[in-house]
Simulated scan of single mutants.
Amino acid sequence: MICDPAFEHVVEAFRDGVGKGGAALAIVADGRLVVDVWHGTRDEAGRLPWERDTAVNVFSLSKAVLATAAHLAAQRGQLDLDAAVTAYWPEFRTDTTVADLLAHRSGLPAIRRKLPAGSLYDWTAMTDALAAEEPWWPPGSRHGYHAVTFGWLVGEVLRRATGREPRELTAELGLSLGWPGPGEPAFVLPLEGAGIERLPAPIAVRAFANPADLIAPGVANTAAWRAAQIPAANGHATARALADLFGRIGNLLTPTLLAEATAPHSDGHDEVLAGPTRFGLGYMLPSGLRPYSPNPRAFGHTGAGGALVFADPDLGIALAYTPNRLITTPTGPDPRWTPITDAVYA
């Protein structure tokens, strides 16, 4: 384990908040790994200890890694963020741009028709359905969290633009879509608190529960989930790998591209989550709904049940928190983050 003495109070706050299950915390400060700690257990029965290289499903943190792959492709000249999606995906019927996809502005957060069982694991079924879908609002006019469709939309554009699968691109950045093995990732413990019944509108129900495979009990622990590419949700990583990536983004991307990627492109009422959210181009920015940092210039992403990654360019840190015990927090911070971030910013 690594704990710089200057961060001992942060680590103490982390350990106090783990509770049932296990978690890991990693912090990079000014390019140096200053915290790499873990605590608790990684299996369903609570007998196997969390280890240094224990990876866990980090859910929507996957979006931030996929977005980073998109920005790297743009930097290499393989992808034009201002281009129409049809420039890469001719079958796509919605008149929107790649930037709109990244900023949750394309109007495609959900599919209206009920999808058959197994669609979640079928890349072609999902991308064909999205290519044919009518937008829920005029693209570019409003924003709404593309909770799961984000991965297929951005992933398919990247696949066509680069000729490489999304899982190849994210693997280079420290995140595995699904779980290739060897070994097993941390067991994802059952969600605590109300779930789908708390979603505010029909659009949100479809966004989070169509295909219905998304809400099957224990889906994140199944072989089908771990074998698939679901780039918005089934990424697996260690906290250390995520903190390392976000600690290096300032070196990976040019200052101009990083500034554009992390500037607010969507800010205000979210059509899906029915609350105030802010997004850059693929990165979730701190908001009233997810206030993970007091600095509005911080950028990263939160994940279902409590996972978190962000970089604060003013403080010079990157932080990742990866739990396997899932807690439902419809609004506000995860109760385990607050002591950690309070200690960081104290």
Score class of each variant (00 low, 15 high):
52 R>V: 10
61 L>S: 05
123 W>H: 13
110 A>P: 04
56 V>C: 11
58 V>D: 09
123 W>Y: 09
49 P>D: 09
53 D>F: 12
120 L>V: 12
96 T>S: 10
76 R>W: 03
70 A>V: 02
108 L>A: 08
104 H>E: 03
89 W>K: 01
80 D>T: 05
63 K>Q: 15
92 F>L: 01
113 R>P: 01
76 R>F: 02
49 P>F: 00
55 A>I: 06
61 L>P: 02
55 A>R: 15
99 A>E: 12
51 E>S: 14
54 T>H: 02
73 A>I: 07
57 N>H: 09
60 S>L: 07
65 V>N: 07
107 G>W: 00
92 F>Y: 12
109 P>I: 00
120 L>S: 14
110 A>L: 01
74 A>G: 04
61 L>W: 04
81 L>T: 02
87 A>W: 04
53 D>I: 00
78 Q>Y: 05
74 A>M: 10
99 A>I: 08
55 A>H: 03
46 G>A: 12
82 D>Q: 08
73 A>Q: 04
79 L>R: 02
93 R>M: 04
106 S>C: 15
92 F>K: 00
87 A>V: 10
53 D>K: 13
93 R>S: 14
123 W>M: 11
76 R>N: 15
107 G>V: 00
121 Y>G: 09
103 A>N: 11
63 K>L: 11
92 F>I: 00
95 D>L: 13
53 D>M: 06
112 R>E: 15
100 D>T: 07
62 S>Y: 08
95 D>A: 15
55 A>M: 11
96 T>V: 05
99 A>M: 01
53 D>H: 14
71 H>L: 15
52 R>I: 09
86 T>G: 12
74 A>D: 10
117 A>M: 09
97 T>W: 07
97 T>C: 04
57 N>L: 11
109 P>G: 06
89 W>M: 02
65 V>P: 13
107 G>I: 00
99 A>Q: 09
69 A>N: 00
88 Y>K: 06
118 G>L: 01
119 S>G: 08
116 P>H: 08
93 R>F: 01
66 L>C: 11
86 T>P: 01
89 W>V: 00
58 V>M: 09
102 L>S: 10
100 D>I: 01
75 Q>M: 11
60 S>Q: 12
61 L>I: 14
96 T>Q: 02
57 N>P: 03
47 R>H: 11
78 Q>T: 03
76 R>P: 01
67 A>H: 07
49 P>A: 14
76 R>T: 09
86 T>M: 06
63 K>S: 12
109 P>A: 04
81 L>H: 06
90 P>L: 06
117 A>V: 06
102 L>G: 11
114 K>S: 15
104 H>Q: 14
99 A>V: 06
96 T>H: 00
89 W>P: 01
67 A>D: 08
99 A>G: 14
60 S>D: 13
89 W>Q: 01
73 A>H: 03
60 S>P: 05
51 E>C: 06
113 R>Q: 13
101 L>I: 10
70 A>M: 03
111 I>M: 03
114 K>D: 11
55 A>L: 10
74 A>Y: 06
49 P>Y: 02
65 V>F: 07
101 L>W: 09
82 D>T: 14
64 A>V: 09
64 A>Q: 08
90 P>D: 06
88 Y>P: 01
112 R>K: 14
61 L>F: 06
77 G>Y: 02
111 I>G: 01
82 D>F: 02
73 A>Y: 05
68 T>D: 05
48 L>H: 08
50 W>L: 09
82 D>H: 12
60 S>A: 12
